[in-house]
Design a protein around this nucleic acid. Sequence first.
DNA 1: AAATGATACGTGTATATACACGTGTCCATA
DNA 2: TATGGACACGTGTATATACACGTATCATTT
Lengths: 152, 152
Amino acid sequence: MPRQKDAQKPGACFCVNVRRAARAITKIYDQALEPSGLKVTQYSMLKNIDAYGPLNTSALAKLLSLDRTTLVRNLKLLESAGLIENRTSPDPRERQFIITEHGRQTVAHAMPFWKHTQRRLSQQIGTDNLALIGHLASVLEGLATGQDEPIA
Amino acid sequence: MPRQKDAQKPGACFCVNVRRAARAITKIYDQALEPSGLKVTQYSMLKNIDAYGPLNTSALAKLLSLDRTTLVRNLKLLESAGLIENRTSPDPRERQFIITEHGRQTVAHAMPFWKHTQRRLSQQIGTDNLALIGHLASVLEGLATGQDEPIA
DNA sequence: AAATGATACGTGTATATACACGTGTCCATA
DNA sequence: TATGGACACGTGTATATACACGTATCATTT
């Protein structure tokens, strides 16, 4: 069997496959969350601010392994929608975000749809396989240096 | 152990984890391919057109499990860069793309970096785990209906 | 030949994502 | 006290992604 050849087929790119998986699973969650008006990305931000807030942009970026500048604009959407708000902080540099009452209600509305999808996937794909993704993400984040490794 | 509680922690969303993995692995591949001037997404399109072309937009979309309209603009970039070109087709509706000589050279330049990354990840993450991603993607694509399931 | 369903395409709009860059503030130390 | 590094932020720019819509062409069936 020409395994060597297989490994070079265009369909064998690990990165492309993870991206394919991400697109597909995003579609599943977005459709499930549709009644709440939230995308899964927004649900994720909101849920984390709810659970761990108040949080500033940089802290949330670390929490979500997202680029900070990505969050600047994503958070703007949540703020415009009145789901989070900007609490005044002693340090004038930072913007501390907390969830609003409307945000809490929206999360509460979305939660059952999210849970249902989590359960559905657990059954259809297996908890083990799904747990592996979490580990994989962490390992990959470790491998993706990106952060200008310290000189010493 | 309150497993039930864990499953509700904000960090336990399968979708968010897959997306985290996708971001991280994309960074790894994009950095590796940087000398070629290609992003991994572009490399993927180009490689597939090279291997299976001529292809029209819809066919490539199916091949990559990508929305067709996404490709319209992504392909425009490759075309502007002179990496692919638009072959005239008997059917005036479709645009058949083929790789150009410049495109072939670019792929050839990028390939070693891609292969090196594939190998590196195989070693550090394990071929089995990586193969699982491909399966996972396929299963998820099956679960994500999206395609207005046929009435009968 | 006319009608119709399927096929192929592109655009408007919105979100997600990251990088390069520049600004302001805090704090520790010279 | 002055200053330089660390920290927090936002914007410009570019790419990736999808959905809703509308248009043109093909092919098949009246």
